[in-house]
Simulated assay, not measured.
Amino acid sequence: MLSKLTRFFRREPVLSIAALAAIVTAFFAPFSPKAIGEAIDWRVLALLFCLMAVVQGLEGAGLFEKLAQSAIQRAGSLRGLCAVLVLLCFFSSMLVTNDVALLTFVPFAVLVLRGAGFEKHLLYVVVLQTAAANLGSMATPVGNPQNLFLFSRYQMSAPYFFIRVLPVAGLSLLLLLLLLLPIPRGSLSVQSGQSPRPLSLKAILPYGILFALCLCTVLHLVPYPITFVLVLLYLAVKDRPILRRVDYGLLLTFVFFFLFVGNLGAIPPVKQALYQAIQGREMIACTLMSQVISNVPAAVLLSGFTEKGGALLLGSNLGGLGTLVASLASLISFRLYGKAQPEQKGRYLLYFTLVNVLLLLLLLPLCLLLDR
Rank of each mutant, 00 (worst) to 15 (best):
L2P: 01
L2W: 15
F8G: 09
I17F: 13
A19P: 01
L20R: 00
P30Q: 12
P33A: 14
K34Y: 12
E38I: 00
A39L: 05
R43P: 00
L45D: 07
L45E: 12
C50W: 03
L51S: 10
M52K: 05
A61K: 14
A75C: 04
A75I: 03
S77A: 02
C82R: 11
L85H: 06
V86K: 07
V86L: 08
L87Q: 06
S92C: 13
V96M: 14
N98D: 15
A101T: 06
F105D: 04
V112S: 04
L113G: 12
K120C: 00
L123W: 01
V126L: 03
V127K: 06
L128I: 03
L135P: 07
L135N: 14
L135K: 11
G136D: 03
P145G: 13
Q146K: 08
N147F: 10
L150M: 12
M156E: 05
S157R: 13
Y160D: 10
I163L: 11
V165T: 15
V168E: 06
L180Y: 10
I183D: 07
S192W: 08
A203M: 08
G208S: 11
L221Q: 14
P223T: 08
Y224P: 13
P225R: 13
T227F: 07
F228P: 10
D239Y: 09
R240P: 07
P241D: 09
L243S: 10
F260Y: 09
F260A: 11
I267A: 03
P269E: 06
Q272K: 15
L274I: 15
E282G: 09
V292R: 02
S294Y: 05
P297M: 12
G304S: 09
F305I: 08
S316W: 07
G322P: 06
V325W: 10
A329R: 14
L336S: 08
Q341I: 00
Q344A: 13
K345N: 00
Y348K: 06
L349H: 07
N356C: 01
N356W: 07
L366M: 04
L369M: 05
